[in-house]
Design a protein around this nucleic acid. Structure first.
Lengths: 172, 172
DNA sequence: TGCGGACTAGCCAAATTTGGCTAATTCGCG
DNA sequence: CGCGAATTAGCCAAATTTGGCTAGTCCGCA
């Protein structure tokens, strides 16, 4: 699941044709640095790759305001489709960064997105239960790798994520 | 903060001279797949790099049991130092995978490790509070990037992590 | 005996990330 | 006016990750 691609496509989906630097600014405005690191090189690399794959197309060049000219890109129909698929993946993920990217873009898939998120919340809760049961069965331990502590840590973390998602869904 | 390096060095620290495949087996026994993905290529790559950097040294070649021969490596003194530094970094991290790697190896740094973990828990709790305050101040929103929801999600997640760490510390 | 499957041991090429960097243009101050 | 700083716009080489793959050896079954 590629978070950079999802975010770049999402910014373009929301704002229309954009150049690299503007995408970076949109993502900065969205405060993605709160939940992930995004390096400028990754944005440009993904733009190049996605252009090569036909997910986005070049919309020519415009003069810049204070700097060099801008190379504009916009979503193609297959890019739109790829965006929606990436979003579905993100909304189904247990990885908090991926989930955050999915949540940021949830409104691009309103009904389906909420259903996916509800399913994810429920799976997270089940998994939290499963891990907590494993923790209860794990022997007391000395030394690496502290399996029981890790099971507790992850179970409580998944539990918290599930709870937050349910709260978010209930509010909307 | 390089989790692969920490885990490879940690396995060697715990078990002595090992070859690549054995490191992979140790890490599998430790169930690291529960909290991160570790590709075999990453293990071998980090072995090569760390050998080049003098963090580990080659201990020759032995015959394999049922397969090809094994290329053994062991920790050098500077590798030991690097291991401890990586472990300190992991125990201070807000990233759950890094923290998990740190926790798995906590007993290699008993007093200092627990102190670091206590500090991390306290910083996590402060940050959770800070994010929750930001969430309370954020305007209701429609469309990307759902900043308030994300602030809640992360705040509750950091809060859960802090709580789990405190629980783990209280138990030991 | 021979062959397929399992286990042992490691490698590889491509993709992606990282942590800066370069370059163009404008602005503001001495 | 000139120069350094700031902003705009993007690039680059190295490091790391990914998702398999190859190859050697043994085991078990027909």
């Amino acid at each position: 699941m590629n978070v950079v691609r999802l975010l770049v496509l999402g910014a373009m989906r929301e704002k229309g044709a954009l150049h690299g630097y503007a995408i970076r600014q949109v993502l900065e405005d969205w405060q993605v640095q709160m939940w992930t690191r995004l390096h400028s090189g990754s944005v440009y690399h993904s733009l190049q790759q996605m252009a090569k794959e036909g997910l986005i197309s070049s919309q020519g060049h415009e003069p810049g305001h204070r700097g060099p000219g801008k190379a504009l890109f916009s979503l193609t129909p297959s890019g739109e489709e790829e965006f929606l698929n990436l979003l579905r993946g993100a909304l189904s993920s247990f990885d908090l960064v991926e989930l955050s990217a999915g949540l940021a873009l949830l409104d691009c898939l309103p009904e389906e997105g909420s259903a996916l998120l509800a399913d994810t919340a429920s799976r997270l809760a089940e998994n939290a239960d499963r891990l907590m049961k494993l923790a209860a069965m794990a022997p007391p331990e000395t030394g690496a790798p502290r399996t029981r502590d890790l099971l507790v840590l992850w179970s409580e973390n998944l539990r918290a994520t599930a709870g937050s998602l349910q709260k978010i869904l209930a509010k909307h």
